[in-house]
Design a protein around this nucleic acid. Sequence first.
RNA 1: CGGAGCGUAGCGCAGCUUGGUAGCGCAUCUGCUUUGGGAGCAGAGGGUCGUAGGUUCAAAUCCUAUCGCUCCGACCA
Length: 572
Amino acid sequence: MRLSQSLWQTFKEVPAEAEIPSHRLMLRAGLIHKSGAGIYNLLPFGLRVVQKIERIVRDELDKAGCQEILMSMVTPGELWQESGRWDLMTEMLKFKDKKNRDLCLSPTNEETVSDIFRNIVKSYKSLPATLYQINTKFRDEIRPRFGLMRAREFIMKDAYSFHNDKESLDLVYKDLYDAYCRIFERMGLEYTVVEADGGAMASSDSQTHEFQVVAETGEDEIIYCAQTGYAANIEKAKTKRANAPALTGDAAYEDVATPGAATIEAVAKLLKIEKHHTIKALVYECISGEESKIIVAFILGDDTLNEVKLKAVTGADHVRAASESMLSLVGLVKGFIGPVGLSEKIEVLIDEAIDHEGLYVAGANKADFHTKNIKPSRDAIHAKRVDLRLACSGDLTLDEKGVVAVRRGIEVGHIFQLGNKYTKAMNVTVSDVNGKPMHPLMGCYGIGITRVAAAAVEQNNDEGGIIWPAAIAPYHVYFASIAKDEEVSKIAEGIYHELQNQGLEVVFDDRKVGPGFKFKDSDLLGLPVRIVVGDKTWKDQEKIEVVWRHNGEKLLVSREELVGTLKAGLKV
RNA sequence: CGGAGCGUAGCGCAGCUUGGUAGCGCAUCUGCUUUGGGAGCAGAGGGUCGUAGGUUCAAAUCCUAUCGCUCCGACCA
């Protein structure tokens, strides 16, 4: 590919809108172009990256026995009404056609694939079956951001499997898990597989894993233990607190005056105790459908509540902190809420990190008073013990064999066991061995293709620009011809053709610009290797300069050695 | 949806306080000279100052409304 005849423009200056490295660099390197909030066009080099990613995904999924299909991007609303998600999926872009029929742009495709499946598959003998597609998705995110990282329109690979029983689902789930590992390994990305929360997609107790590309700018927090290998999304992570023993004894509880001490900080200071010897009350409004109820959650004074866990425990669709007016409505005094003397009508949860036999200080349920020597097993008998605390750096794993740390990650893949949630809702049945209808079990498996491209840049860049892993780089070689001499220019032309004939993907920079300009563009675009043919090195020693982008290693090779050197380094 | 900020040439910005001929750098085009880390000189093209009202002799500038974009939060498979 000749740059002199290509549509490619790089930018020295960064568009003000771009905040994170991948977004900045992809704009500057001329890979993408923005049309609107969260809506991007892929330019030639950007598209090639996406195609490279897709090729790896297809290859591994086909090997894993999946079949590719292509589902319509526009879906009839009735399918979503059937599954009950028409009103639940708030980020779905809905519209009507000329005949006033409901339609939407697919944010995901469980409904469509179920519809296909129920119309085609009749027997248990056809199972298991796994279908996938690589297609554009549209999610009308409340806040799109970071370029391709969280765009509204994006390309996703989504796969769906159908099974007769749990064993079959487990097997295919494992196959896809392994395929995903191979996919991200082949792409040259540093990733972690973490346990995750099923969220709105599946129930919270179903098996689900996220594939997270490790990067500082990631939107997700991951709890990771180097010693034991434990890894989980912080939303899901279960850990143990380290070194925070409770006070012990048998003293009866008693109220103490704590005027104005409405925060844990103030109470601990006033009573000269550790924060983890206090119990903090958090009041939440838990909303399920039309109904909402008030729940009081107790956690240790210096812990943070994990709202995803709360949501899972209460089975609510949404949880949110209760407003002050709601507190007074149910007779709670903000800043002085505690388990003793609390109305039995209020549902109470107590975190497992609180020692049931320990002694704690908590609010006395009246202004300016706290209660000390509260022993949960004796004094908080209405409270249901559940895991609510947000894991944090320094915690121990549950088996106490390792210490965990927090990392940030970009979720590039997510696999779920859906069970029969959708096959039931959509009435998908096949005949079982006895000829009776049964609802197959489902699994679903996603990879954000365009997000992978952004994540790869996020993980691999320096001051000069992008450093593409060879497997997903738009081209293999950046060939800067900086020859002025006509003879040497001809040699460069010859080398360009030779490389192409050898199957190497070459960007031939034959533009009439200075060498510095070409080197800067080369670094910015970030192809794995740059070669340079110039008058000096060629005329003096008939050598070609080879520079590897990832480590800056520079060497001079002869024309005979060139192809071998490149192929060995690129592993192609 | 709550909070903050920004809309002036393709990109980055100045001008706005105190109303009076729309500017700078990069990019683009032409010519000449250059060529191993974003070259130099000379010249050129490109903007109804987001949009719509209003105030005024006069609005990029003041007022009102509206649209768009970005960031933080809420939210998010």
